[in-house]
Design a protein around this nucleic acid. Sequence first.
RNA 1: GGGCGCGUAGUCUAGUCUGGAUAGGGCACCAGCCUUCGAAGCUGGGCGUCCCAGGUUCAAAUCCUGGCGCGCCCGCCA
Length: 639
Amino acid sequence: MSPTPQTNNPWNAAAELVIQLLVKVASTDSETVRKYIEIPPDPDLGDIASTVSFRLAKELKKSPAAIATEITQSLEKEAKKEPLLDRIVAKGPYINFFFDREEFARRVVSEVCKINATYGMTEEFKGTRALIESPAVNPSKPWHIGHARNAILGDTLANILESVGFEVVRIDYINDLGLQIAQLTWKIMHDDVDLAKVSEKMDHFLGHLYVEVQKVTENDSGVENEIREITRRLEDLNSEEAKRSAEMVTLCLKAQCQTAYRLGIYKNYQIWESSIAHSGLLQTAKDLMLQAENILELTEGEKKGCIVANLAAMEEFKDMKDPHKVLFRSDGTRTYTGADVAFQMWKFGVIKDPFHYSVFEEQANGEDVYRTALDGSDRNLGGFDIVYNVIASAQAHPQRLIYTILDLLGHHEQSLNSHHVAYEFVGLEDADFSGRKGTWIGYSTDDVLDKATELAKEEVAKRNPDESNEFKEIVGAKVGTGAVRYFMLKASPDRKITFRWDEALDFNGDAAPYLQYSFARAQRILEKTGMEPTGKAELTLLSSEVEFALVKAIARFPEEILEVVRGLKKDVWGTSFSSNRITGYCYELATLFSKFYDSCPVLKAEPKTRAARLELVSAFRITMGNCLRILGIPVVEKM
RNA sequence: GGGCGCGUAGUCUAGUCUGGAUAGGGCACCAGCCUUCGAAGCUGGGCGUCCCAGGUUCAAAUCCUGGCGCGCCCGCCA
């Protein structure tokens, strides 16, 4: 099964051509050859290379270098017939292929200019329905920058999946029944706070209030009892507590959404915990669970009366103190694990959608986000093929439990298609973020975006003194938020980020403004010519070292995206998402354009060269623009 | 006790899954480049026990074994 070369994936098409040639003479199959294809470390060595001679050395009982020479010689004729290839050179054991620069440039640049906005989009995963859940911040505080990491990773993953053909639904989980909510409800009722009169952004107001609550509850067991009582009364939707709580949560969530919109993050649905509690989902799940062999109600011991999953047989949980994982407590209430399993069953359509939906609000992009509600329309959501939960690495164990229990319930495929997209925390040099202690204060996502925007605006103003203040505001915001998004994406998700202002707000070098700047420079060149790409230029003139390097980078774009998606492999303890690979690609693309910009004048070149270079600039602009959109980094035409 | 992740120049980091050519970048530092499409840029330079010790291999930052250091996780909690 060899992937058919796609015209919208020029690098893959070229690589496949090389593979097919090698198969003809290397006495092995294309799958094997494909494994021994690589990009040489130095472009002087070749454009694409094969190390298949190492592999063949043993069976042929010849030295790799001799094999490479033989293969190269027998391919000489073929190479001459193939317009895309210039020459093949054996260097020691390596078989190095040089593309015909003129022909490669012609194919790539004309193709990119033709398909324009869809360049980078492929259909390898067409028809798969994916659900992405992120970031599930409690609606009781502002996002700190760790939450932003989650939200940005989730949003970018969704963009990437969409670009390779997935049908993606983005949801957020709203825990409006947690302890934090009960504590805050107690506080606003106790102090009789009128939320309508609060002028501070609501999530920040509550975040500060929460720190105060902690101080009170820490050494007052009476308060603790009062809060327990509130938790109980919140279950009754008609109680005063439930009404005050709902008002508070809604206002807080709307405030949090404002932060998300600043980052260009939008959702399709919010699933509220209170809806789950009142939907019958848990009861349905419980009934289904009890039919499974390894899920049972214990009749003796410490956990008498609990409904538990028996994990004794599972290798990865053999070190648990007690292999009986509680799903429903002896008083009948669900544990987090129990609720999560039920929720995961809903996602896959194992349980029919019991929710009603109503519009929560119109988002900043003009699209409505729906929330689960008691009254509202049926939408029959669920039944997804694959589910991505973006959650901190620290949750690897509980996530694994959920997927394992799903398997115990007989939903093997669904278990395999459950992905924990894991990422490490963002912390400070001397502290981790804690809502309890309030260490997030000063490091909320809003704070960081504010500072980034302000700094960017200053830089914009310096360079565009004659522009309007509105221009400076808008561009400053785009550059600032882009910088924050890029900062979160360029770090490998499995690496902990220590947040430092000077690093996060460094607009030079490997940072978003550099990418945006390269786009703006390309934009300016094209504007000065009236954006004229004629489609008639002699693209074969694009053969200099720097021009060709840029062409090759442009050609790799679709394959780079696909590689990231193919790399989303499920491991026992999580699924790794290499967001940093796309930022790395995007940065390299910008670097190559900057070098081209520096050494290849466009507007002042000879007419024919000028026409060809204009097309290359256009192809770059398209590729960079599409890549920035996938990363969620705002495209700016002038900065 | 067990599991997971991380360890690469002053510093932050890519590459590790899938072994392959001189270990790529950013910041900081030093020296150049704006009357020529935007200097948020370009060019050049110094900076490395790839945590340690074994092993496998023609070849190890990458795979295996054993250590060391740092972080996280293993509740009828939330």
